[in-house]
Design a protein around this nucleic acid. Structure first.
Length: 399
RNA sequence: GGUGAGUUAUUCAAGUGGUUAAAGAGAUCGGAUUGUAAAUCCGCCGGCUAUGCCUUCGAAGGUUCAAAUCCUUCACUCACCA
């Protein structure tokens, strides 16, 4: 039983520091029901969760199954300072209202995965503000500049002559101090957080709170391109609140190689079943596409339900396999005699009329599923289905 | 504070007075092929009812028939010195 729990906990992790401690905590829970705390920090600047975040959330949920109490830490203090990495000085510092709004939407999404009753939401502003300048300086004395420059992304940026703001040096310290204040037993984060996570251990020791958190790191989930990490700004993400058909479709569009990665990090299928599936695919017993469809279905189902996932699957097959029209698309009204290119822009299918012209030339635009070639076409009264490429559709009514 | 180098389109990066909307590469997008996969090949890749016109090369001025390219000021970045 305990063994099983530990295996589940270790699944998919990139690195665990002090796994003996995790073992002890879990064992204690099974022996006398004592719970322990698992901390994870979240930045309130990005209210849209994507699958990259869920890797972490799923791991937290696993801990919750085995006696962990999650400290869902909102980094509102650091958010209010503003991100020093952004070169644009104009970057908006978040107001209290913004943060509250973001958090509400954030937690709503997070509780699709986490058990709300075993989660404590905490805000680091509560104790970091009280720390004051003196406390801050004392904190800063725990670390040398040389040590700080050891951090991978700092040294990389330093070498490549990218600016590093001094305040950025404070981030790991503040994050570490959070662990001191919360007396966390375990902290989890992405591998890119290693330095910060270890800082928590170091500071807990320095502040003598009589425990040192175990650290569990999850790999960074690659985005749809399979190379860079999943992030909103790179546009290679699958959002938790994406429509079912988008989640389904986006997963099917990943490469086969990446599919296994997603299976490992996102699926709830047991590791041995995944290995078996992998074998079946390579021996051609199972078509890779089937494997991918199952994954897409499972994940869509997790964020919605079986019914909607089934619909998404059917929709996908009808649109892309049978080349039928999607059941739902945005509708727009236009006035009589509108120029096609303008109509495409107004229907948000194209960014500019120039782009629309180019796409028409490239044979990418269809009206009612018939490719058009005349870029000067004007539309008479009636209803049309405009399509650009394979994925973009809109219905327009010309009056 | 001093000295030097730099800031080009979505990103990296050429271009040092005129055939420059600006080489090359990547990303995105589209076409072919497929399993809407990957790989590959090809095209497009500032805007405008458009064989032309307009706006872009950190910002603002200036020199010139002509400026991304020269000059001045400002902003930002980096390096070395202090």
């Amino acid at each position: 039983m305990i063994q099983e729990a530990l295996e589940e906990i270790a699944r998919g992790t990139a690195e665990i520091i002090d796994s003996e401690r995790i073992e002890k905590l879990v064992t204690k829970y099974y022996n006398d029901g004592t719970t322990y705390t698992v901390k994870a920090g979240f930045d309130p600047t990005a209210p849209d969760l994507h699958l990259g975040h869920t890797v972490l959330l799923q791991k937290l949920a696993t801990f919750q199954k085995f006696g962990g109490r999650v400290q869902f830490l909102i980094g509102d203090f650091t958010a209010m300072i503003g991100d020093p990495t952004g070169k644009s000085a104009t970057r908006k510092v978040l107001t209290k209202e913004d943060i509250i709004k973001n958090i509400t939407s954030y937690t709503q999404q997070a509780f699709k995965i986490l058990d709300e009753s075993k989660t404590d939401i905490v805000y680091n502003n509560d104790w970091l503000e009280a720390l004051g300048s003196a406390g801050m300086l004392q904190l800063a004395s725990n670390l040398t500049v040389a040590r700080m420059l050891e951090r991978d992304d700092f040294s990389k940026r330093y070498r490549s002559n990218t600016p590093i703001a001094v305040s950025e040096f404070m981030y790991p310290l503040l994050q570490g101090y959070d662990s001191v204040h919360l007396k966390s037993d375990i902290e989890i984060g992405g591998t890119d957080q290693k330095f910060n996570l270890l800082m928590g251990r170091q500071l807990q020791k320095a502040y003598e709170i009589k425990k040192q958190q175990a650290v569990l790191m999850m790999p960074i989930l690659e985005g749809l391109d399979g190379v860079q990490k999943m992030s909103k700004s790179l546009g290679n993400y699958i959002g938790v609140i994406d429509a079912p058909k988008d989640i389904y479709g986006k997963i099917l569009s990943i490469s086969d190689e990446l599919m296994w990665r997603y299976y490992e990090l996102l699926s709830e299928m047991s590791l041995s079943d995944i290995t078996k599936l992998q074998k079946d695919v390579s021996s051609r017993t199972i078509h890779p596409k089937t494997a991918k469809e199952n994954l897409a279905f499972e994940i869509t189902k997790r964020f919605y339900n079986e019914e909607l996932a089934t619909l998404a699957k059917e929709e996908f097959n009808s649109v892309f396999k049978a080349k039928k029209l999607p059941t739902e698309m945005l509708e727009f009204e236009m006035s009589n005699g509108i120029w096609v290119c303008q109509a495409l822009v107004d229907a948000k299918l194209e960014s500019s009329t120039s782009q629309a012209r180019r796409d028409i030339k490239q044979n990418a635009v269809s009206i009612d599923q018939v490719k058009i070639s005349d870029e000067k076409l004007n539309l008479e009264t009636g209803e049309y289905i405009l399509q650009v490429g394979k994925k973009r559709f809109a219905k327009i009514k010309v009056k």
